[in-house]
Design a protein around this nucleic acid. Structure first.
Length: 425
RNA sequence: GGAAGAAUGGCAGAGCUGGUUUAAUGCACUAGUCUUGAAAACUAGCGUGCCGCAAGGUACCGGGGGUUCGAAUCCCUCUUCUUCCGCCA
């Protein structure tokens, strides 16, 4: 959520940048509207405060009058207060309405794209920030991962259908073991990079879902437990970033670095076709997330560190990858700048997104009320960042496809000490 | 799931028979005095949001609602915690 103060001070820059997201001039008028609503809000509060002040003072007088036995005069004041309160309730209602209208209006405005975000509408307009440096691999044996999964009995989609439904794959045997190996590898790498490991709850309440912006704009993406009013997390970002919700930090506490492994649950309603085949898009998958809370002056430096971290993982896993700088139209609602990582799945001949590393600047911290005190004691919103390091299901798809040979699948060297085997057959 | 009790500012802890409470007091913290330095002592300051150039105003005593001229204090409701009972990996 943007700050009204920021909108007031930088409305032209903000409008200019929001256009990169494809917002029309008409849609941008919401920003002018926000300022008008905020003016109204201030005005109502000033009027309301003045009335309350009078009521308070008169009530004090009534008290003393009763004590001194001056009942008549007290009763007279009472009628005066009653009249005042009636007038005040009008302003109070105005104030409430303005606050609500302001909140609703602010919710509709996405984050302001960073200066370096390319304009564009769809994923085709994303800029290849770092291309794959050599020829893409071609395979002698090129079964897609879903066929490899059943051939070696490590991945079973039919079984998932039986137990739960489409999009809930079952890993078994060496497939499960590979999964666990990746989780441990990613967590060890994150820990070595200074991230504190967290095991968060997988169900979150409304306040938490609102804090990171899943509510209200992505409500349909989450599984919801109506009976208990809880949401299954779509990513560890949600519970882990909320660790610092409402915190007032000091500058020397930066950066805060968290990592967490969690299953992620996504409803992803209405997606069908080749893109959702196999592990390409599922309702439940495992992911290791890295999260940082940083001083605004250093957050872009931090973003680069996180990008480097994710890149190092892909290098160690020997996977062909490329890095995209998302264009305005493809940028997430809450993000100011996002780099996507894609790995090449050689049998499908497709690029699969396996990580998304973003700087949210103050967009999340404004909703989270996450602030820090500078040396002069002034309070400012902190910056939040996060990235997948990495999303498992698609990484497994790529490993299976790219490493297949005639009679099995080679396990990447870096994982062998984790799996305890070098080959799946 | 059942019963009882509790929730106050960074912490501890008054207030809770409704009206100088603009929330006492202590600790912690910050600045100053004193000291060679430190400690101690003393003096002052010390929550958050919103409105205001400022002076100042206003709201907040777990969340929400209500009664009243006036609520930390009374009522309703929700949440969390503690103790006991039940169930249980």
């Amino acid at each position: 959520m943007l700050e009204v103060k920021n909108i007031r001070e930088n409305i032209d820059t903000i409008k200019h940048r929001l256009k990169k997201r494809g917002m029309s001039d008409d849609a941008l008028l919401i920003l002018d509207e926000i300022i008008v609503i905020d003016d109204k809000r201030k005005q109502s509060q000033t009027s309301n405060d003045a009335i309350l002040s009078q009521v308070k003072s008169l009530s004090g007088q009534i008290g003393s009058l009763y004590k001194s036995g001056n009942r008549e005069e007290a009763d007279q004041l009472k009628t005066q207060v009653t009249a005042l309160k009636e007038e005040g309730s009008k302003y109070e209602q105005e104030l409430k309405d303005a606050e609500e209208a302001l909140y609703q209006a602010l919710l509709t405005v996405p984050n302001v794209p960073h200066d370096s975000v390319p304009a564009g509408q769809t994923e085709d307009d994303n800029e290849v920030h770092k291309p794959w440096h050599t020829d893409l691999p071609t395979l002698e044996h090129n079964l897609p991962h879903w066929e490899l999964g059943s051939k070696y009995n490590i991945l079973d989609f039919e079984l998932g259908n039986k137990i739960t439904g489409a999009g809930f794959p079952v890993f078994r045997g060496k497939g499960s073991r590979l999964q666990r190996a990746l989780i441990n590898f990613f967590l060890d790498e994150a820990t070595a990079a200074g991230y504190e490991e967290i095991v968060p709850p997988l169900l979150v309440n409304e306040d938490t879902a609102r804090g990171t912006g899943q509510l209200p704009d992505k409500e349909g993406q989450m599984y919801y437990m109506e009976r208990d009013n809880l949401y299954l997390i779509p990513t560890a970002e949600v519970p882990v970033t909320n660790i610092v919700r409402g915190n007032l930090m000091t500058e020397d506490q930066f950066p805060v670095k968290f990592t967490a492994y969690t299953p992620c649950f996504r409803r992803e309603a209405g997606s069908y076709g080749a893109d959702v085949k196999g592990l390409n898009r599922v309702h439940q998958f495992d992911k290791i997330e890295i999260i940082q809370i940083q001083h605004p002056d250093k957050s872009y430096e931090t973003l680069q560190q996180m990008v480097d971290h994710v890149e190092s993982l892909l290098v160690k896993l020997e996977l062909p990858y490329r890095i995209l700088r998302l264009c305005g139209g493809d940028l997430g609602f809450t993000s100011a700048l996002t780099f996507d990582f894609e790995v090449y799945a050689a049998a499908q001949k497709k690029w699969l997104e396996v990580s998304s590393v973003s700087n949210f600047e103050t967009f999340q911290s404004n909703r989270l009320k996450l602030r820090y005190k500078d040396q002069s004691g002034k309070k400012h919103l902190a910056h939040t960042l996060n990235g997948s390091a990495l999303a498992l299901a698609r990484i497994i798809a790529a490993i299976l496809e790219n490493n297949q040979v005639a009679d099995g699948i080679r396990v990447p060297t870096v994982l062998q000490s984790y799996t305890g085997f070098e080959f799946i057959n």
